[in-house]
Design a protein around this nucleic acid. Structure first.
Ligand SMILES: [Mn+2]
Ligand SMILES: [Mn+2]
Ligand SMILES: [Zn+2]
Ligand SMILES: [Zn+2]
Lengths: 126, 126
DNA sequence: CTTATATTTGCAACTTAGTTGCATTAACTA
DNA sequence: TAGTTAATGCAACTAAGTTGCAAATATAAG
């Protein structure tokens, strides 16, 4: 079930994802917006934005959910599948605009895959 | 800090990983062994076995930690990096003996990567 | 502009994976 | 066999995420 009304919470949250390919964790958003929006609402709005194809989500190495803007998705067509990169130094997590081809697996039906890369981002690498 | 003494808990847990490439979640192991071994001990022994290079771990799509036997690792050399497959029907999670090459990322230093594939396993596929 | 209705929100209480401190027990060594 | 130290069990805790419900608010009709 997606978003029906353009509330303040929705606008504040959408704003956080403007002009960035960076993924934001729920923990981060609650820390940042917890005084303006209740954490339950934050979880609910994020989940609705994901249903609508506005955001996509994945789990970081710490098991915490992260959200990032979708580029080419809609409510009916969620096709935003790409690797994610998490920096061990600054913690920044980014979407990567690259294709990774998954090899065929005999006897198995592949439905979805996620690649998570750990390392040092462009700012933190030596 | 790895394992120093061969206790009953260690043997029971090691036994669960015999003769299988299947990964077992902490939740599964606690459900299965919770009457013989305290859950705290289960977590602690698993972590030590990982330090020793006997097991390796990763997070499933549900965010729950899973462990599986290492093939070629030791305390000093943890080189067991491979994709994992999680079945949406039966929940079974397996290590995949395939190589996936990660493309170079300019300006970034790649330290580690994990590929998690969701689908239907050989038994559950049509 | 006012009202009716359905959606959204905040709050408190809850669930669950995982961790910690500490006293007790058990494995190994001498 | 006794002493040392690692390992265990227990209870209490942490933290991410969820749920039920009453109060608030966006939206559309009148
Ligand atoms: Mn992304
Ligand atoms: Mn594996
Ligand atoms: Zn960085
Ligand atoms: Zn299966």
């Amino acid at each position: 079930m997606g978003i029906i009304r353009k509330t303040e919470s929705v606008e504040i949250l959408l704003n956080e994802f403007q002009d960035t390919e960076t993924a934001l964790s729920t923990v981060e958003l609650i820390k940042r917006l917890g005084k303006q929006i209740n954490k339950t609402t934050i979880y609910r709005v994020l989940s609705k934005l994901e249903d609508d194809g506005v955001l996509h989500s994945f789990l970081g190495f710490d098991g915490v959910k992260r959200f990032a803007r979708c580029k080419t998705c809609s409510k009916s067509n969620h096709s935003d599948v790409h690797p994610h990169f998490q920096c061990v130094s600054c913690g920044k997590t980014e979407c990567l605009d690259i294709e990774v081809n998954i090899p065929e697996l005999l006897n198995r039906e592949v439905m979805f895959s996620q690649l998570l890369i750990k390392g040092k981002c462009n700012l933190c690498a030596v």
